[in-house]
Protein backbone atom coordinates (compact mmCIF):
# COMPACT_ATOMS: atom_id res chain seq x y z
CA UNK A 1 0.00 0.00 0.00
CA UNK A 2 2.51 2.55 1.24
CA UNK A 3 5.33 1.20 -0.95
CA UNK A 4 3.12 1.43 -4.04
CA UNK A 5 2.31 5.08 -3.34
CA UNK A 6 5.95 5.98 -2.71
CA UNK A 7 7.04 4.28 -5.95
CA UNK A 8 4.34 6.08 -7.94
CA UNK A 9 5.17 9.44 -6.36
CA UNK A 10 8.87 8.97 -7.12
CA UNK A 11 8.07 8.11 -10.74
CA UNK A 12 5.90 11.21 -11.17
CA UNK A 13 8.55 13.40 -9.57
CA UNK A 14 11.27 11.90 -11.75
CA UNK A 15 9.49 12.40 -15.08
CA UNK A 16 8.61 15.97 -14.16
CA UNK A 17 4.84 15.55 -14.14
CA UNK A 18 4.70 17.00 -10.65
CA UNK A 19 6.99 19.38 -8.79
CA UNK A 20 6.07 18.31 -5.29
CA UNK A 21 4.11 15.70 -3.41
CA UNK A 22 1.60 16.38 -0.67
CA UNK A 23 1.17 13.41 1.63
CA UNK A 24 1.68 12.28 5.19
CA UNK A 25 4.81 11.56 7.17
CA UNK A 26 5.46 10.05 10.55
CA UNK A 27 4.77 12.48 13.37
CA UNK A 28 6.40 12.52 16.82
CA UNK A 29 5.03 9.05 17.43
CA UNK A 30 4.07 6.12 15.27
CA UNK A 31 0.43 6.93 15.51
CA UNK A 32 0.08 10.58 14.62
CA UNK A 33 0.99 10.88 10.97
CA UNK A 34 0.99 14.51 9.85
CA UNK A 35 0.57 16.26 6.48
CA UNK A 36 3.84 16.99 4.73
CA UNK A 37 5.18 18.27 1.42
CA UNK A 38 7.94 16.25 -0.26
CA UNK A 39 10.06 17.80 -2.98
CA UNK A 40 12.74 15.19 -3.55
CA UNK A 41 12.77 11.45 -4.14
CA UNK A 42 14.93 10.89 -1.02
CA UNK A 43 12.55 12.73 1.26
CA UNK A 44 9.74 10.48 0.04
CA UNK A 45 11.24 7.64 2.07
CA UNK A 46 9.59 9.32 5.04
CA UNK A 47 6.18 9.08 3.37
CA UNK A 48 3.62 7.20 5.43
CA UNK A 49 0.19 5.85 4.58
CA UNK A 50 -1.48 3.90 7.34
CA UNK A 51 -4.56 3.89 9.55
CA UNK A 52 -3.48 7.08 11.29
CA UNK A 53 -3.45 9.19 8.13
CA UNK A 54 -6.83 10.68 8.98
CA UNK A 55 -5.82 14.22 8.01
CA UNK A 56 -7.73 15.62 5.05
CA UNK A 57 -5.17 17.09 2.64
CA UNK A 58 -7.66 19.12 0.57
CA UNK A 59 -7.20 22.33 2.49
CA UNK A 60 -3.41 22.28 2.04
CA UNK A 61 -4.02 22.30 -1.71
CA UNK A 62 -5.33 25.86 -1.58
CA UNK A 63 -1.78 27.02 -1.05
CA UNK A 64 0.01 24.30 -2.97
CA UNK A 65 -2.08 24.58 -6.12
CA UNK A 66 -1.01 28.21 -6.44
CA UNK A 67 2.68 27.33 -6.59
CA UNK A 68 4.54 26.81 -9.80
CA UNK A 69 4.29 23.31 -11.23
CA UNK A 70 1.83 20.59 -10.39
CA UNK A 71 1.35 19.18 -6.94
CA UNK A 72 0.62 15.51 -6.44
CA UNK A 73 -1.90 14.90 -3.70
CA UNK A 74 -3.28 11.71 -2.18
CA UNK A 75 -6.98 11.83 -1.41
CA UNK A 76 -9.15 9.39 0.46
CA UNK A 77 -12.77 9.04 -0.73
CA UNK A 78 -14.20 11.53 1.79
CA UNK A 79 -11.36 14.00 1.11
CA UNK A 80 -12.35 14.21 -2.56
CA UNK A 81 -15.67 15.80 -1.56
CA UNK A 82 -13.83 18.59 0.26
CA UNK A 83 -11.53 18.95 -2.72
CA UNK A 84 -14.45 19.26 -5.13
CA UNK A 85 -16.13 21.80 -2.88
CA UNK A 86 -12.96 23.91 -2.93
CA UNK A 87 -12.82 23.73 -6.73
CA UNK A 88 -16.41 24.94 -6.79
CA UNK A 89 -15.49 27.90 -4.61
CA UNK A 90 -12.52 28.71 -6.85
CA UNK A 91 -10.09 28.15 -4.02
CA UNK A 92 -8.06 25.43 -5.75
CA UNK A 93 -6.50 25.53 -9.17
CA UNK A 94 -7.43 22.11 -10.53
CA UNK A 95 -4.99 22.41 -13.45
CA UNK A 96 -2.12 22.53 -11.01
CA UNK A 97 -2.99 19.34 -9.20
CA UNK A 98 -2.52 15.66 -9.83
CA UNK A 99 -4.72 13.49 -7.67
CA UNK A 100 -4.04 9.89 -6.79
CA UNK A 101 -7.12 8.38 -5.20
CA UNK A 102 -6.21 6.13 -2.31
CA UNK A 103 -8.41 3.53 -0.68
CA UNK A 104 -9.45 3.71 2.95
CA UNK A 105 -10.56 1.05 5.42
CA UNK A 106 -11.60 3.53 8.09
CA UNK A 107 -9.04 5.58 9.97
CA UNK A 108 -7.98 4.75 13.51
CA UNK A 109 -8.55 6.70 16.68
CA UNK A 110 -5.63 6.41 19.08
CA UNK A 111 -7.88 7.50 21.95
CA UNK A 112 -10.01 4.40 21.46
CA UNK A 113 -6.94 2.19 21.53
CA UNK A 114 -5.85 3.91 24.74
CA UNK A 115 -9.33 3.61 26.20
CA UNK A 116 -9.18 -0.14 25.65
CA UNK A 117 -6.56 -0.23 28.40
CA UNK A 118 -3.32 0.08 26.44
CA UNK A 119 -0.81 2.28 28.21
CA UNK A 120 2.53 3.58 26.97
CA UNK A 121 1.87 2.60 23.37
CA UNK A 122 5.01 2.46 21.26
CA UNK A 123 3.59 1.41 17.94
CA UNK A 124 0.46 0.02 16.36
CA UNK A 125 0.62 -2.38 13.42
CA UNK A 126 -2.37 -3.21 11.25
CA UNK A 127 -2.74 -6.81 10.18
CA UNK A 128 -6.01 -7.24 8.38
CA UNK A 129 -8.86 -7.01 10.83
CA UNK A 130 -6.64 -6.97 13.92
CA UNK A 131 -4.34 -4.38 15.43
CA UNK A 132 -1.08 -5.49 17.03
CA UNK A 133 -0.34 -2.97 19.73
CA UNK A 134 3.20 -2.82 21.00
CA UNK A 135 3.46 -1.14 24.38
CA UNK A 136 6.15 -0.65 26.99
CA UNK A 137 4.31 -3.22 29.11
CA UNK A 138 4.06 -5.91 26.46
CA UNK A 139 2.04 -6.60 23.36
CA UNK A 140 -1.69 -6.61 22.94
CA UNK A 141 -4.25 -7.13 20.21
CA UNK A 142 -7.60 -5.60 19.44
CA UNK A 143 -10.10 -5.75 16.62
CA UNK A 144 -9.52 -2.98 14.08
CA UNK A 145 -13.27 -2.42 13.93
CA UNK A 146 -13.32 -1.25 17.56
CA UNK A 147 -10.67 1.42 17.02
CA UNK A 148 -11.95 3.27 13.96
CA UNK A 149 -12.91 6.93 14.25
CA UNK A 150 -16.60 7.62 14.84
CA UNK A 151 -16.78 9.48 11.56
CA UNK A 152 -15.64 6.36 9.69
CA UNK A 153 -18.48 4.33 11.15
CA UNK A 154 -20.83 6.46 9.07
CA UNK A 155 -18.56 6.38 6.01
CA UNK A 156 -19.83 8.07 2.85
CA UNK A 157 -18.65 5.11 0.80
CA UNK A 158 -15.61 4.27 -1.26
CA UNK A 159 -16.35 6.45 -4.27
CA UNK A 160 -13.84 9.14 -5.23
CA UNK A 161 -15.64 12.07 -6.85
CA UNK A 162 -12.50 13.57 -8.37
CA UNK A 163 -9.15 11.97 -9.26
CA UNK A 164 -6.53 11.54 -11.98
CA UNK A 165 -5.59 7.97 -11.22
CA UNK A 166 -6.64 5.25 -8.81
CA UNK A 167 -4.26 3.36 -6.55
CA UNK A 168 -4.50 -0.43 -6.83
CA UNK A 169 -6.12 -0.94 -3.42
CA UNK A 170 -9.09 1.33 -4.06
CA UNK A 171 -12.60 -0.04 -3.59
CA UNK A 172 -14.89 2.36 -5.46
CA UNK A 173 -17.89 0.10 -4.80
CA UNK A 174 -17.69 0.21 -1.01
CA UNK A 175 -21.24 1.17 0.08
CA UNK A 176 -22.05 4.10 2.32
CA UNK A 177 -22.75 3.18 5.94
CA UNK A 178 -26.21 3.55 7.40
CA UNK A 179 -27.23 5.74 10.29
CA UNK A 180 -25.34 8.93 9.58
CA UNK A 181 -27.99 11.05 11.29
CA UNK A 182 -28.71 8.71 14.22
CA UNK A 183 -26.84 10.85 16.74
CA UNK A 184 -28.62 13.99 15.52
CA UNK A 185 -31.99 12.25 15.77
CA UNK A 186 -31.21 11.09 19.28
CA UNK A 187 -30.58 14.67 20.35
CA UNK A 188 -33.65 15.94 18.51
CA UNK A 189 -35.78 13.47 20.44
CA UNK A 190 -34.64 14.93 23.78
CA UNK A 191 -36.45 17.70 25.61
CA UNK A 192 -35.02 21.20 25.03
CA UNK A 193 -33.73 21.34 28.62
CA UNK A 194 -31.89 18.05 28.16
CA UNK A 195 -30.44 19.21 24.86
CA UNK A 196 -29.31 22.42 26.47
CA UNK A 197 -27.67 20.53 29.33
CA UNK A 198 -25.93 18.26 26.82
CA UNK A 199 -24.54 21.15 24.78
CA UNK A 200 -23.60 23.14 27.83
CA UNK A 201 -21.63 20.15 29.08
CA UNK A 202 -19.87 19.81 25.74
CA UNK A 203 -19.28 23.42 24.72
CA UNK A 204 -18.16 24.59 28.16
CA UNK A 205 -15.07 22.41 27.73
CA UNK A 206 -13.99 24.38 24.66
CA UNK A 207 -10.62 26.09 25.16
CA UNK A 208 -10.92 28.17 21.96
CA UNK A 209 -7.79 26.68 20.45
CA UNK A 210 -9.39 27.22 17.02
CA UNK A 211 -8.19 23.80 15.83
CA UNK A 212 -11.65 23.04 14.41
CA UNK A 213 -11.53 26.20 12.35
CA UNK A 214 -7.96 25.76 11.21
CA UNK A 215 -8.43 22.20 10.03
CA UNK A 216 -11.80 22.66 8.35
CA UNK A 217 -11.55 22.53 4.54
CA UNK A 218 -14.72 24.63 4.27
CA UNK A 219 -13.27 27.33 6.58
CA UNK A 220 -11.02 28.69 3.87
CA UNK A 221 -11.54 32.45 4.14
CA UNK A 222 -8.31 34.40 3.88
CA UNK A 223 -9.53 36.67 6.64
CA UNK A 224 -11.67 34.94 9.21
CA UNK A 225 -14.11 36.91 11.32
CA UNK A 226 -12.53 35.34 14.37
CA UNK A 227 -9.16 36.83 13.50
CA UNK A 228 -8.52 40.12 15.14
CA UNK A 229 -5.81 42.55 14.09
CA UNK A 230 -5.83 44.29 17.45
CA UNK A 231 -4.29 41.40 19.31
CA UNK A 232 -1.14 39.46 18.63
CA UNK A 233 -1.96 36.44 20.73
CA UNK A 234 -2.36 34.11 17.74
CA UNK A 235 -6.06 34.91 17.50
CA UNK A 236 -6.77 32.43 20.22
CA UNK A 237 -7.88 34.72 22.98
CA UNK A 238 -11.47 35.57 23.56
CA UNK A 239 -11.62 39.04 22.21
CA UNK A 240 -15.26 39.63 23.00
CA UNK A 241 -18.05 37.96 24.85
CA UNK A 242 -19.90 37.66 21.57
CA UNK A 243 -17.20 35.41 20.19
CA UNK A 244 -17.04 33.62 23.48
CA UNK A 245 -20.72 32.75 23.51
CA UNK A 246 -21.49 32.27 19.87
CA UNK A 247 -18.30 30.80 18.44
CA UNK A 248 -19.66 27.34 17.77
CA UNK A 249 -22.95 28.51 16.31
CA UNK A 250 -21.16 30.91 13.98
CA UNK A 251 -18.55 28.35 12.99
CA UNK A 252 -21.20 25.78 12.11
CA UNK A 253 -23.34 28.39 10.37
CA UNK A 254 -20.49 29.61 8.19
CA UNK A 255 -19.96 26.18 6.72
CA UNK A 256 -23.65 25.25 6.48
CA UNK A 257 -24.48 24.04 3.00
CA UNK A 258 -20.78 23.74 2.20
CA UNK A 259 -19.71 21.27 4.87
CA UNK A 260 -19.05 17.86 3.31
CA UNK A 261 -19.22 16.15 6.70
CA UNK A 262 -15.58 15.04 6.63
CA UNK A 263 -15.50 15.06 10.41
CA UNK A 264 -12.09 16.70 10.78
CA UNK A 265 -13.42 19.19 13.36
CA UNK A 266 -14.26 16.45 15.83
CA UNK A 267 -11.10 14.48 15.07
CA UNK A 268 -8.78 17.36 15.95
CA UNK A 269 -10.71 18.70 18.95
CA UNK A 270 -8.44 18.31 21.98
CA UNK A 271 -11.47 18.29 24.24
CA UNK A 272 -13.36 15.73 22.17
CA UNK A 273 -16.36 17.95 21.64
CA UNK A 274 -18.66 16.37 19.03
CA UNK A 275 -18.57 19.44 16.79
CA UNK A 276 -19.58 17.42 13.74
CA UNK A 277 -23.05 17.10 15.26
CA UNK A 278 -23.67 20.81 14.69
CA UNK A 279 -22.64 20.52 11.05
CA UNK A 280 -24.61 17.34 10.63
CA UNK A 281 -27.71 19.00 12.06
CA UNK A 282 -27.50 21.61 9.31
CA UNK A 283 -27.02 18.89 6.70
CA UNK A 284 -29.97 16.93 8.03
CA UNK A 285 -32.16 20.06 8.03
CA UNK A 286 -31.12 20.97 4.51
CA UNK A 287 -31.87 17.44 3.33
CA UNK A 288 -35.25 17.53 5.02
CA UNK A 289 -36.33 21.01 3.93
CA UNK A 290 -34.66 21.54 0.57
CA UNK A 291 -33.99 18.06 -0.77
CA UNK A 292 -31.02 15.73 -0.47
CA UNK A 293 -27.77 17.60 -0.91
CA UNK A 294 -24.20 16.42 -0.55
CA UNK A 295 -21.70 19.26 -0.68
CA UNK A 296 -18.74 18.52 -2.92
CA UNK A 297 -20.46 15.81 -4.92
CA UNK A 298 -20.09 17.99 -8.03
CA UNK A 299 -18.57 21.33 -8.90
CA UNK A 300 -21.56 23.02 -10.49
CA UNK A 301 -24.69 22.80 -8.31
CA UNK A 302 -25.74 25.80 -6.24
CA UNK A 303 -25.37 25.54 -2.49
CA UNK A 304 -28.76 25.23 -0.78
CA UNK A 305 -28.34 28.41 1.27
CA UNK A 306 -27.54 30.53 -1.76
CA UNK A 307 -30.57 29.21 -3.55
CA UNK A 308 -34.34 29.16 -3.03
CA UNK A 309 -37.64 27.98 -4.40
CA UNK A 310 -40.87 29.94 -4.14
CA UNK A 311 -42.55 27.20 -2.07
CA UNK A 312 -39.88 26.65 0.58
CA UNK A 313 -41.03 25.78 4.08
CA UNK A 314 -41.70 28.68 6.42
CA UNK A 315 -39.41 29.17 9.45
CA UNK A 316 -42.38 28.30 11.66
CA UNK A 317 -41.78 24.65 10.72
CA UNK A 318 -39.26 24.59 13.57
CA UNK A 319 -42.08 25.21 16.05
CA UNK A 320 -44.57 22.96 14.35
CA UNK A 321 -42.49 19.81 14.31
CA UNK A 322 -42.51 19.83 18.08
Amino acid sequence: MQAELIARAKALLADGTVARVLGWRKGDTDFNAEPAVFETAESLDEFVYDGFCGANLSKYMIKNSKLEGKTLVFLKPCDTYSFNQLIKENRINRDNTYIIAVGCYGKLDINKIKAAGNKAILSVAEEGATLKIHTAYGDAEMAREEAVLDRCKVCKGGKHVVYDELASFVDEEKPAAEGRFDEVKKLEAMKPEERFAFWQGELSRCIRCNACRNVCPACSCIKCIFDNNNYDAAQKVNTSSFEEQMFHIIRAWHVAGRCTDCGECSRVCPENIPLHLLNRKFISDINEFYGEFQAGEDTTSRAPLTNFTTDDVEPSIVKERG
Partner: peptide, 8 residues
Protein backbone atom coordinates in the same frame (compact mmCIF):
# COMPACT_ATOMS: atom_id res chain seq x y z
CA UNK B 1 -33.83 28.78 14.18
CA UNK B 2 -33.64 25.04 13.83
CA UNK B 3 -30.05 25.15 15.06
CA UNK B 4 -30.95 27.31 18.06
CA UNK B 5 -33.67 24.81 18.91
CA UNK B 6 -31.12 21.99 18.54
CA UNK B 7 -28.88 23.71 21.08
CA UNK B 8 -31.77 23.85 23.51
Amino acid sequence: FSMLDFLG
